[in-house]
Simulated assay, not measured.
Amino acid sequence: MFFAAEDFLRLRDRLAARHCHAPLLPGVMPLTTEKVLHKAIELAGVDAPPKLAGELLRYSDNPRALRAAGIDAAVRLGERLLREGVPALHFYTLNNASTTRAVVEALRLGRAVSREPAALT
């Protein structure tokens, strides 16, 4: 778990320098509520960067704006990682497919995520 692309990229580069070429996929968690932000901080074991926390928490009294800011931050993170050659992204959905769908669509990753569950065959 990480908040800044640089943290993941440093890890990737340190592993490559040690000739470790195991797949390493960054996990992206859209931070769309204060509760999700605090849970991410707990899981990461580090504070969110002040700039990111401030960007999100300035909307603590406006849930829709906080959600939009969280999606935007996740899109910026994903764009940076993909520009740096990361082959894929893993999304922590927290049972909120619409948020993940918004990030995936904004990143133009493959075809749009289906809104309907896949049929069981």
Rank of each mutant, 00 (worst) to 15 (best):
L31S: 02
L11R: 12
T100F: 01
A5R: 07
L77C: 11
L66M: 15
G70V: 09
E6K: 12
E105V: 09
Y59L: 02
A102I: 08
P117I: 06
R83Q: 15
V75I: 15
S60M: 02
E84T: 07
A48T: 04
G110D: 00
R64L: 11
M29V: 15
H90A: 12
L52Y: 01
E116F: 13
S98A: 14
T32S: 02
L56M: 04
S114R: 15
L77E: 11
A74K: 01
A68E: 15
P117E: 10
A118E: 12
A88Q: 10
R10V: 14
R83T: 11
A74P: 02
V86T: 13
V86R: 00
N62L: 00
A40C: 13
K51N: 10
H90Q: 15
A88V: 09
V104W: 09
A68Q: 15
P23G: 03
E105H: 15
V46C: 11
E34Y: 03
A106K: 15
E105I: 09
R58T: 03
N62A: 11
E42W: 02
N96K: 13
D61L: 11
P117G: 09
Y59Q: 01
E42Y: 07
A74T: 11
L81H: 03
E6V: 06
R76Q: 15
T93N: 11
P30E: 07
H19Q: 15
A118H: 10
M1Y: 11
K51G: 12
A112P: 13
P26N: 06
F8S: 03
L81I: 08
A73E: 10
L15G: 06
P63T: 04
D47W: 03
L31V: 13
A65C: 06
H90P: 13
A73I: 09
V103Q: 05
N95H: 13
L82H: 10
E34Q: 12
A69M: 04
M29Y: 07
P49Y: 05
P50K: 10
M29E: 00
A112M: 10
G78P: 05
G78H: 07
L94T: 03
L24H: 02
E34I: 14
V86N: 03
H19R: 05
V28H: 05
E6N: 08
L43A: 14
L82N: 04
A16W: 04
I71K: 01
R67I: 05
H90K: 05
I71F: 11
T99A: 13
A48N: 01
L15W: 06
T33Y: 05
E42A: 03
A40W: 02
A88M: 11
V28E: 00
T93Q: 08
F2Q: 02
G27H: 06
V86K: 00
R12Q: 14
A44Y: 02
T33G: 00
P63V: 06
R76V: 06
L25N: 07
R111P: 08
A68V: 07
E6D: 14
R101N: 05
G70R: 01
A112T: 12
P50I: 00
E116Q: 14
K35W: 08
L56S: 01
A112E: 05
L109Q: 10
A106L: 08
